[in-house]
Amino acid sequence: MSGWLTEPVPLGRVAAFRTLVYLFVAADLLFFTPWIRDKASIPGELYQPLFVGRLLPLPTPTPLLVNVLFWALLLAALAAATGRAPRALGWTVFLLYFEWMVIAMSYGKVDHDRFGFLVALAVLPTVGRARHGDRTESEAAGWALRVTQIAVVCTYFLAAWAKLRFGGLEWMTGSVLARAIIRRGTELADLIAQVPYLLIAAQFGIIAFELLSPVVFVVSPRWRQAVVAFFYSFHLVTVATITISFAPHLVAMTSFLALERLRPVERLRRLTGRRGGPESAPGEAEGAPGGQPGKGGGPELPGHGPGDGSGGPDSRTDAGVMPAGPPGQRSPVVP
Rank of each mutant, 00 (worst) to 15 (best):
L121V: 01
V228I: 13
M172A: 14
P214Y: 06
L211G: 04
P335W: 05
T254P: 03
V153L: 08
L73D: 06
Y197K: 11
V93Q: 05
D314P: 00
Q48I: 03
G44N: 04
F24W: 12
V110Q: 12
W35I: 10
T272S: 15
V123N: 08
S213I: 08
R129A: 08
R131Q: 14
D113W: 01
V110C: 00
Q149W: 06
L262Y: 11
P57F: 05
T33N: 12
R179F: 00
G312F: 04
L158I: 14
T173Y: 06
V251T: 02
V239H: 03
V216G: 06
R222K: 14
G294E: 01
G325V: 12
A16H: 11
R129Q: 13
T126M: 12
A72C: 08
P10M: 02
V21K: 03
S41Q: 13
T126G: 07
R330G: 10
Q203P: 08
L20A: 15
A16D: 13
A319T: 15
A258Q: 12
A76G: 04
R270Y: 06
I200K: 13
P221F: 05
V52E: 10
R222D: 06
V25C: 07
V237H: 01
P10I: 01
L158Q: 10
Y22H: 13
W35C: 07
L95W: 15
F231R: 03
S233Q: 02
H249G: 05
L5T: 04
M322R: 14
P289L: 02
L30Q: 11
A144K: 01
E260G: 14
I103Y: 15
L124C: 04
A151K: 10
L236C: 10
V195P: 01
P293T: 10
L58W: 09
T6I: 00
I206S: 13
T241F: 08
T272V: 14
R18E: 02
G90M: 00
A104R: 14
L169Y: 11
L121E: 03
F70L: 04
G311N: 07
A81D: 03
P125A: 02
L262V: 11
R316M: 11
L11G: 05
L199V: 04
S106M: 06
L95I: 12
S331A: 15
P278Y: 07
G3F: 03
M105W: 04
S41G: 12
L11N: 08
L23H: 00
G273D: 14
V66M: 03
L236I: 12
G290M: 06
I242L: 02
P86G: 05
V195M: 09
G307V: 02
V152S: 01
A122P: 05
R54P: 00
D28H: 14
T243A: 14
T317H: 09
L73K: 04
R224F: 04
D113K: 09
L89M: 04
L65C: 07
L198C: 02
G83A: 07
D318R: 15
R146D: 03
A319L: 15
L191M: 10
A79R: 02
L257Y: 09
